[in-house]
Amino acid sequence: MSVNAEASNRVVAAPASGAKSRKKGLFSELKRNRVLYAMFIPIAVYFIIFAYIPMAGIIMAFKDFNYRDGIFGSPWNGFANFEYFFKSGKAFLVTRNTIIYNVIFLTCYTVFSILAAVFISEITRKWFKKISQTMMFLPYFISWVTVSAFVYNFLNYEYGIVNKMLAHFSIAPLDIYSNTSYWYFLLPFLYVWKWVGYGSVLYLAAIVGIDQEVYEAATIDGATRFQKITRITLPLLKPTMIILILLGLGRIMRGEFDMFYQLIGNNGTLMDATDIIDTLAFRSLVGSADFGMASAVGVYQSVLTLIIILTANWLVRRYDKDQALF
C-alpha cells in the first residue's frame, strides 16, 4: 500500500511546478518539455490528418449538399436537415430511451466485468483461468445478426425451444416478441453476455497491474482473501472504473445500433419501448442516401454527448482532479 500512497502524495505536489512555468509562457514550456512534446507529435499529426481535416465536413449538416458545388460551395439551408428528426414527434422519446438503455448497459457491464475479473483473479489453477477467460471472450465474435437468429430460434412463438419445453409441461406459450417487459431484461442480458469477456480483460489487467508486494504485506498482516478484495483490489480498481465509465458516457448517445436493429427490427409493438436515436434515423433515411440529413443526427448526438461528458468530467474533477479525463 505504501508505494501507492506515496505516489498519490507526489501527485498533489506536482501542480506547483506547473504554476512556476506558467509565467514563462508557451515558448519556454515547449522548450523545457521538448522531448515530451516531440513524443506527442506522431499522434498529433495522425489526428490532424485523419480526424480534424475531414471534420470540416461537419458543415454538411447545415447545407443542401450537391456534387457540382462540393461540400464547401453547396448552399446553406440552416436547420432543414434536422427537421425530419424533430418533426417525427419522437425526438424526446428516443433520446430518453437511448440514455436510459445506455445507463443500464453501462452499469450492468461495469458490475459484471468487475465481478468476473475479481473472481478470475482469485482462481489459482492456471488452466481453468485461461480456458474460462477464453470462453468468456467467444460471444464478442458472434455478430448481432447471428445472435438474433439464435434468439429467434430459441424464443419464437411457434417452434422456439422455450415454448416447446413449456408445451411439454402444458404451460401456455410465451409471446416474447409482442411483449415489451421481456425485453427490458433480455436486452441488458444479451449486452452483458456479449461484452463481459471484453470488459473483464481490462479490469483483470488492472488487478494484475497492482503491485504484488501490497498483497504480500497484507497477507503478513493476516488479512483474509475477502478483506484483500474489499480493502485492496476494489479501491485500486476505482481509477480504472472511473475512466472506463467516463469513456462509456462518451458513447451514451449512440448505443448498440446493430443490437436493436437486428433483434427488434421494425417491430411496431415493441417500438415505443425500444426505439433509440440511431434506429429512428435509420428508419427515416432508409434508401435516401442524404448525407446532410444523416450527419444532422450525428451532430445532435455529438452536441448532447459533449454536454454530458463535460458535466461528468467536471463532477469527477471536483471530487478528484487526477481521475478526470482532462
Binding site: A80, Y84, K87, S88, G268, M271, L280, S284, S288, M293
Partner: peptide
C-alpha cells in the same frame, strides 16, 4: 418534401406494419 417523406416512412413502420 424529403423531411415529410422521412417522417412518413417512420410513422408507417410503427403504425402501419402491425
Amino acid at each position: 418534401v424529403k423531411t415529410e417523406v422521412a417522417t412518413l416512412k417512420n410513422v408507417s413502420s410503427q403504425y402501419a406494419s402491425p
